[in-house]
Amino acid sequence: MSKQIAIRDAYGEALLELGKKNEKIVALEADVGASTKSILFGEVFPDRYFNVGISEFNMVAMAAGFAQEGFIPFVNTFAVFMTTRASDPIQSLIAYDKLNVKMAGTYAGLSDSYDGASHQAITDIAFVRSIPNMTVISVSDAVETKKAVEAIAEYDGPVYLRLSRAPAPVIFDENYDFQIGKGVELRTGKDVAIIATGTILHNALKAAELLEEEGIEATVINIHTIKPIDEEIIINAARLTGAVLTVEEHSIYGGLGSAVAEVLSQNYPTPVDFVGATTFAESGDYDELLEKYGYGARTIADKAKQLINRK
């Protein structure tokens, strides 16, 4: 297996590097800095680091104030708390006025596995995606994380950045050309398209390998920008394969799968199926939970085969 790097470590280091290059970067934290790794920034730039304690609502609303002063605030906490407890300032301050705030929600999907369903974020994409003016990015490996942090700092406007807790295999190399709004085709095959986001992309790639062993050719696409979504790459994949399976560590209602289905139903109606959450999960080993809740490579491959039969 390829080298593994935790997304949160990659994020913390990228934020620190950004802080060295741009003195307009400030970071806000709600008492989980050792977990989000925003602490790496805070140790070097204590004057630009604001740990507000356990007050996510206050933290995100404060970030709106910093943005109005011309700073670029990166707000850090668990994805589940960011998008529930701070939902009000995200929607009515930051998105409404298109403020230049970057909301980094970590421990997304089931990645905070042992803490249980209360700490696992499976509704965050649905919320932020439904808000006008929001850009929504979900990263799959350490390289993409670093490139995404750089790109969203350059972009002027509100961004939700979805990060995993878990160590993840490194898929991309340093030459990877990350562009907000551009999907990435990692494999091309004519039988079925698997469209994934986040670290679970790795299982989508493994599923494609399993399918290949059975003589089925799968396209695999990484959608790191869920909003605005790359319609062209999705429509082209549907044209080529006639069957699209989405994979995300998130509810199948309102996330990547819904976004892909919206694109296809309006542009190129195609059979679509979804790998994602329909229930709360539980505490346990991360890989065991992924298997149990339907995110294993074998499960994805089997679902792809069933979908092909619907063509």
Binding site: V26, F50, F57, N58, M59, A61, M62, A63, A64, G65, F66, A67, Q68, E69, G70, F71, P73, D88, P89, S92, L93
Partner: peptide, 14 residues
């Protein structure tokens, strides 16, 4: 309930 937090962000920005 959000103005005081945002005002604090502005104050710290200044």
């Amino acid at each position: 309930g959000m103005g005081l937090s945002a005002g604090l962000g502005m104050a710290l920005g200044e």
